[in-house]
């Protein structure tokens, strides 16, 4: 039993079978419904609410909980727990705000560098949206090369760390792509958290997600429409309130 617990399968274990040559076998594997126990063991509800499930897993979980009262209860409990945890983070022991930093902006900032920030919707000021839209339009027109600090929604308090910034390069997606399976970038030295932000052509934020890894799959709720150009950027936290950002990269989903 102890041996089994040492085995960790990341993501959807059914992905292992994706390359099966027998279509009937593949279909059978993919159609196996989830059980409540499996959902608990794989922390699917927690990852679902954190926006970290891929499309296949989210589909399986949603198909299950639509008819499962027990898992609906667990979902409601998980929502309450997330709310309570966020509240504790907000009012709990946090260091006094650094000079020149807006305390409200740092409401969810962790006291320890190893803690992960909650994924949350941030409000964007009208000015930031308009500024970002204008800047992105200029980039798309090839008029200027945009630095991260030019974008209205870049982290507000960033120290100079040229080495880390130079190494934080975006890898995938780039250019014309069929789908966006994941966002991938090179690690920044000393980074303990990454924030990925994706903008549409109008400069509106369509996705913002935080992760400890150097790759993240977009949540199933985010749809990248074909034919539209998107820009994305990664900010890496390299110390308490010290962030470095990548250049902006663009991608476009090819039209069918």
């Amino acid at each position: 039993m102890e041996m089994l617990e040492q085995v960790t399968i990341r993501g959807d274990p059914r992905d292992i079978y994706r390359n099966l040559e027998d279509p009937a076998c593949l279909e059978w594997v993919l159609n196996q419904p989830l059980t409540c126990e499996e959902i608990t063991n794989r922390a699917l509800i927690e990852r679902y609410l954190a926006g970290l499930l891929g499309e296949t897993e989210a589909e399986a979980l949603e198909s299950h909980y639509l008819f499962c009262g027990r898992c609906q209860d667990e979902l409601r409990l998980a929502i309450a727990v997330r709310g309570a945890l966020a509240e504790v983070e907000a009012v709990g022991s946090q260091p006094p705000p650094l000079e020149g930093v807006n305390a409200a902006d740092e409401r969810h900032a962790p006291a320890e560098s190893v803690r992960v920030l909650p994924i949350r919707r941030q409000r964007v000021s009208r000015r930031a949206v308009v500024t970002a839209a204008a800047a992105l339009a200029a980039v798309l027109a090839g008029l200027i090369v945009l630095r991260p600090s030019d974008v209205g929604r870049a982290p507000v308090h960033r120290a100079e760390t040229p080495a880390a910034e130079a190494e934080l390069t975006l890898q995938l997606p780039a250019g014309e792509v069929a789908t966006v399976e994941e966002f991938r970038w090179s690690p920044a030295p000393g980074a303990n958290l990454y924030k990925v932000t994706v903008y549409d052509e109008a400069g509106a934020v369509v996705l913002e997600v935080e992760t400890l890894e150097t790759h993240v799959a977009p949540p199933d709720t985010t749809v990248f429409a074909p034919g539209i150009r998107f820009l994305w950027q990664v900010a890496a936290r390299v110390g308490w309130d010290r962030w470095v950002s990548s250049e902006l990269a663009q991608f476009r989903i090819s039209e069918p």
């Binding site: 617990e5 040492q6 960790t8 063991n41 794989r42 922390a43 927690e46 990852r47 609410l49 954190a50 970290l52 998980a78 727990v81 997330r82 945890l85 983070e89 803690r115 992960v116 920030l117 909650p118 994924i119 400890l212």
Partner: peptide, 11 residues
């Protein structure tokens, strides 16, 4: 916190 915000499994 690690479970509900980072989505980490117990392992």
């Amino acid at each position: 916190h690690l479970s509900f915000f980072a989505g980490l499994t117990p392992a």
